[in-house]
Structures are given as C-alpha cells and as structure tokens.
C-alpha cells in the first residue's frame, strides 16, 4: 500500500482517558451546543470530546453544517456551550463569564478567521500592535513584538498600509500576526484559507506550519484536506459528532509520486477495472 494511517485500536477511542490528559493544553468533554431558532432546535455540536496537547497541531474537518465553526467558537469562548466541559491549561473555563473569557482571549488564545476581520480603520502595524497595547505591555515591548511579527510574516513593507488595500493572503498574514501578538498558548484558526486562492492558501499554510514548528499549539477548522493534512492529528466531525480522530502518517517518500496518484502509469493493477475478471 502506498500510504496508510494507523487506525485507533478499540481502547484508544477516548484520548481523555489516557495519561496525557493531565498535560493537555485543551480538553473538551461532552460539549454540546443547541441553537434555538424559528425552525426549532438545531443541534450544532453533540457531545464532542477532544484534546489538544501543548505544541500539538490538531485539525477538525467535516462537511459544512457539521458544527466545526461552532466547535471552535465554543472553545474560544465566543459562544457558550449548552452542556459539557472545557478545560484550558488545566483550569475549567466553560462556565466563565464573558468578561473572564475576554481576558483569556487576550492572554492565552489567538484567533484567525476566514474573513480576516481586521480593524478596518487602522494600519497593518497598528492592527498587529493593538492586542499588546490592550493587554498592558510597555511601549517598548509592544513595539518590539510588532516589529518581530511583521518581519517573521514578511509584512514589513506593508506596515503602513490600510488593510483594505491588501490582498486576501496578505490580510490573513496580518491576522495571523495579530493573533500571535500576545504569544497565546493556543491558536484557533477558523477556515483560514477559506477565502484565499491556491497560492495564497499555500503561503498561509506554510506559515502555520512554521509557527507550529516553533512550538505553537494550533486548533484548525477547515474543509480543505490540504490544510487539514498539515496537522498532527485530524478529527472528523459529522453532524455535530466526532466520527474519527486519527494521526496522519504521510506515505514513504519514495513511493509517492503525483503521477501515481493521478494513475498516469506504474504500480500494480494499472488499467483494469475491479469488475474485470482477473
């Protein structure tokens, strides 16, 4: 076989039971969210368990309507769960007030959104500096961090520009810089490549990988496999529930060629249908 992913054995279905739970950065147990609307109740998230360890890159995939974004909003405190537990850094956070959540978001969580959501009437540099200013850094600290991030993400030349004048990819990089401004322990990304073309997506994903390599824990929600496969672990969501939670193993380098994937030649069973007698 060309590539394979090791399936979870029966006992491994619940990562929470493992001893790694004590050091997990994020722990979610039985999380549920029900939206009550005109058409009745919508169960966006049904009893989801997941965990993210320090420095781990976890992706959540699923079709649209599977509750991925809602799950991310719940983890980030932008929505409050109907039931379930959320533990961040060893402390229980699901019942926190909005004010406390806001403090968490300032210090420990960084957000990147599909539609960038930059503050439109501030320059790029100001956008990146704003979180530091708001959370009590000194002038020097804020300025230094800003320059560092701009350089890291290749935005120095655009520092004085208005966000509206940047391309999608550049705006998302600014958003990433802003999210990392306060060195959060967890980076939450909601479809970061959803609004980007192919090459810009690649740039952003490369940046995410680089950030991950430097030790950042990331929880990424996406419907694009290209983004999901960069993660250490991929959780599949369907209809608000987790259906799969697996580590992604890339195939052996020598046996992967694009041509083989495209069935352009080589490898066993070429050119025959399964229904052909053989």
């Amino acid at each position: 076989m060309i590539g394979q992913a090791r399936p979870l054995a029966a006992g491994q279905a619940r990562p929470l039971a493992a001893s790694a739970a004590g050091t997990a950065l994020l722990r979610v147990a039985g999380l549920t969210k029900v939206f009550r609307g005109d058409g009745g109740a919508v169960h966006a998230v049904r009893g989801v368990d997941l965990s993210v360890a320090r420095g781990e890159f976890v992706a959540v995939t699923g079709p649209s309507g599977s509750g991925k974004s809602t799950l991310l909003h719940l983890v980030g405190g932008l929505e409050s769960p109907s039931s379930g537990e959320i533990w961040l850094g060893g402390k229980r956070v699901d019942g926190l007030s909005q004010a406390r959540w806001a403090v968490l978001r300032r210090r420990q969580i960084g957000f990147v959104f599909q539609f960038f959501n930059l503050v439109s009437n501030m320059t790029v540099a100001d956008n990146v500096e704003l979180p530091a200013l708001m959370s009590g850094a000194t002038r020097r600290q804020a300025r230094a961090r800003r320059e560092e991030l701009l350089a890291e993400l290749g935005l120095t030349s655009k520092a004085g520009a208005a966000p509206g004048r940047l391309s999608g990819g550049e705006q998302q990089r600014v958003a990433l810089a802003r999210a990392l401004a306060n060195r959060p322990s967890l980076l939450l990304a909601d479809e970061p490549t959803g609004n980007l073309d192919s090459s810009n997506s690649g740039d952003v994903l490369r940046l995410l990988t680089r950030v991950h390599d430097q030790g950042q824990a990331i929880l990424l929600v996406t419907h694009e496999a290209r983004a999901a496969c960069m993660a250490d672990r991929v959780i599949s969501l369907f209809d608000g529930m987790v259906v799969d939670d697996a580590v992604v193993f890339p195939p052996l380098p020598s046996s992967t060629t694009a041509a083989s994937v495209l069935r352009l030649g080589g490898d066993h069973g070429a050119g025959r249908s399964s229904l052909d007698p053989c």
Partner: peptide
C-alpha cells in the same frame, strides 16, 4: 464590523 474582531481579541 470591527466589533467581532475586537471581541475575538479579548474585549468583553
């Protein structure tokens, strides 16, 4: 439009 971003950044 900015409110969403600001809330995500940590405004109560």
């Amino acid at each position: 439009r900015d409110v969403g971003a600001l809330r995500a950044m940590g405004l109560t």
